[in-house]
C-alpha cells in the first residue's frame, strides 16, 4: 500500500504543450455560470443538504427553474421540521394556512414526519389530504411511538383517535398525549384514559393536564401491565389519597404525580385554568374549507 500511494502523489496532472488550444465549444453564457440552468440532479444534491425551512423560504423562490425542482421533488418533503419557527404568532396563522396547503401538495403523500409547535390542528388534516387523525392512525399498524401533544382537539374526538390506535397499533410502546393546561372546571373525563387502557403493550405514558379521574387511571393501570413510566403531572382530577391509589401505582418504576415539579418537561405549558369557555386557539382561526378543498 505504501509504494502505491507514493506513486500516486508523483503523477500530478501534467500539461502537454502539443496542440494549440482551440476555442471552447461552450457558449459564453455557460462560461459565466448560469446557476438557474444547473442540472436538476446537481441541484437536488444541494437541496438535500438544506433544511426544509431554507427550501420553503429561500431556495424555492430564487428563480423559476429552482422553484420547479423544489415543487416536483416529494423526496425533499419527507421530513418537515418547522420547530425553528416556534415563535409563530397567532396572527400569522392565516399566512401559514396557504403555506401548509402548498407544503402538502409538494410532499405528495411522502411526508413521513412533521414537527411543529404552535400550529393549529388542521395542519394534520391538510397534510393527510382530508383524512382525519382517527382515520389515518390505522394506516400505521407498525407504530411504536405516538405523540399527540398540545392538540387542541378541534374535532373533539381525541378519545376516538386513542381508540383507533389501541385497536390498530398493537406494537405501541410510547404515548405522549399532553394538554396545554389542566381545566379546573371541566368534569372528570375518562374517555381517553379508558381507550389508553386498551393499549396493552404500553411501556411509557405521559398525560400532562389530562382530566382523567381515578377510574380512568385504574383502567390504565389494569390494562397496561408493562407500564414502566407514567407521568400524570397537572392531572388534578386524580385523587391519590383514595381508592388505594398509592399502592396500585407502586409497581410503576417512574411515576410523576400531579403536583410534581415540571423541571424535566420539554413542552410549553400553562398553569391550570379555572374557566375554559373563552380563549381557545381554534376560535382565532378563520379556517376556510372552500380554500382548503380547492387546493387539494
Amino acid at each position: 500500500m505504501e509504494p502505491e500511494s507514493s506513486s500516486l502523489r508523483q503523477c500530478r496532472p501534467r500539461l502537454h504543450d502539443g496542440k494549440p488550444p482551440s476555442p471552447p465549444p461552450t457558449t459564453e453564457g455557460e462560461e459565466t455560470g448560469d446557476w438557474a440552468e444547473l442540472p436538476r440532479d446537481a441541484l437536488l444534491i444541494v437541496l438535500h443538504k438544506l433544511e426544509i425551512l431554507d427550501i420553503i423560504f429561500g431556495v424555492g423562490h430564487v428563480c423559476h427553474s429552482w422553484r420547479r425542482v423544489t415543487q416536483e421533488e416529494p423526496e425533499l418533503w419527507r421530513r418537515i421540521d418547522m420547530l425553528r419557527l416556534a415563535k409563530l404568532e397567532p396572527h400569522r396563522y392565516s399566512q401559514f394556512q396557504s403555506l401548509a396547503h402548498s407544503i402538502a401538495r409538494r410532499s405528495a403523500g411522502q411526508c413521513e414526519s412533521f414537527w411543529a409547535i404552535g400550529f393549529p390542528d388542521y395542519y394534520f388534516t391538510v397534510f393527510s389530504h382530508g383524512v382525519t387523525l382517527k382515520e389515518a392512525i390505522p394506516k400505521f399498524p407498525q407504530l411504536e411511538e405516538l405523540e399527540l401533544s398540545l392538540h387542541t382537539d378541534m374535532f373533539n374526538d381525541m378519545y376516538e383517535v386513542c381508540a383507533a390506535a389501541a385497536e390498530a397499533c398493537p406494537l405501541l410502546k410510547t404515548l405522549r398525549l399532553n394538554k396545554q393546561r389542566y381545566h379546573c372546571n371541566s368534569r372528570v373525563e375518562d374517555k381517553e384514559a379508558m381507550e389508553i387502557g386498551k393499549m396493552h403493550g404500553l411501556r411509557s405514558l405521559q398525560l400532562f393536564g389530562n382530566s382523567l379521574g381515578n377510574d380512568g387511571l385504574a383502567a390504565i393501570l389494569d390494562g397496561c401491565p408493562q407500564l414502566e413510566y407514567l407521568d400524570v403531572r397537572h392531572c388534578f382530577s386524580i385523587r391519590m389519597d383514595r381508592d388505594n391509589m398509592q399502592n396500585r401505582c407502586a409497581r410503576i418504576w417512574t411515576f410523576k404525580l400531579p403536583n410534581d415539579p415540571m423541571d424535566d418537561y420539554n413542552l410549553p405549558f400553562r398553569s391550570p385554568k379555572r374557566w375554559c369557555n373563552v380563549e381557545t386557539p381554534v376560535r382565532n382561526l378563520s379556517f376556510r374549507w372552500d380554500v382548503y378543498w380547492d387546493s387539494l
Partner: peptide, 11 residues
C-alpha cells in the same frame, strides 16, 4: 475542452 492533455493514474 481547450485541448490540454492530462495524464493521471487510471485509479
Amino acid at each position: 475542452s481547450d485541448n490540454t492533455r492530462f495524464e493521471v493514474e487510471a485509479a
